[in-house]
Design a binder for these strands. Structure first.
Lengths: 152, 152
DNA sequence: TATTGTTATACTCTATAACTATA
DNA sequence: TATAGTTATAGAGTATAACAATA
């Protein structure tokens, strides 16, 4: 990459994937303390952004199959953390939204996770830490080719 | 983290895990051109470091179950990419090593993957790119708590 | 008794197919 | 005809159990 001598390193994926797994594994016990499983947390995060979404839109947004999250939604609704409102404009669809309790739980869980992440990031010098997070933000929003191929 | 105002961002895991998935997905077609599946490539990488390893040591090193890689090893051996030498010091164990062809294939596949990764990293300004890779190296080597809990 | 390599089995997760009701 | 939500089924991937050989 015309970058002069580059230090030797493992493949990017070989470093990032295990790191991601470890990060997820570290979230599990934190989420469990909040009574949340990973997908449930993902749903709460996915519902943070307005406007409200339908179930399939949410599924696509959080990278899940639409059938995958149904049980999760059932449970969250039963616990009063989300609402499923019939869409007056399309009687097939159900609009999802967080209840105040859902919002509180999401905030509380996310705060705990952030604290745990900060411990991890503390291993990096401050400027490197900022660059790392900035780079992550940039790379995570890149348009990746759809694994399933362009929609027919 | 005594860091002044920090910009808003998604959870680390929420950025890193999809990035890792995308990186892996990008590797698949490259590896297939080399006649390799993901685990096969992982095995070749895991055998890069001397001294030679036993099957269970390799499995642990690359984060696989020892039963998981047996079929992979069978195939790689049949194709002349690795050797399974009986350990003279322990007749239960089989020492693994790359053949010259295995080494060549690994190098060729890895070079192609690096080129693809460089395209990705080109989205980052040079100094940020260097900091990102350096941070990744640091974080990926941290001692994470064993998901299975400390060995009994 | 523990460990290496192996096979067969069970389990977990996810995607696919099929259905109803709407559009 | 196509889509939203749902259920039931099938598939992929992985781990667990059990075994023979050796330590």
């Amino acid at each position: 990459m015309a970058d002069g001598l580059e230090e030797e390193r493992d493949d990017l994926a070989a470093m990032i994937v295990p790191l991601g797994r470890a990060l997820m594994a570290a979230e599990v016990p934190i989420l469990r303390e909040h009574g949340l499983a990973m997908w449930a947390y993902g749903v709460l995060l996915g519902l943070s952004e307005e406007p409200v979404r339908t179930q399939s839109a949410l599924a696509k947004a959080i990278g899940a199959d639409k059938t995958r999250i149904i049980g999760v939604l059932d449970d969250l609704q039963e616990r009063g953390l989300i609402r499923r409102t019939p869409d007056p404009a399309d009687r097939r669809a159900r609009l999802l939204s967080l209840t105040p309790e859902g919002r509180r739980l999401r905030d509380s869980a996310q705060a705990a996770i952030r604290r745990s992440e900060d411990e991890l990031l503390a291993h990096l010098p401050p400027d490197e830490r900022r660059a790392f997070v900035r780079a992550l933000k940039t790379l995570s929003v890149l348009p990746w080719p759809d694994p399933a191929g362009p929609q027919t």
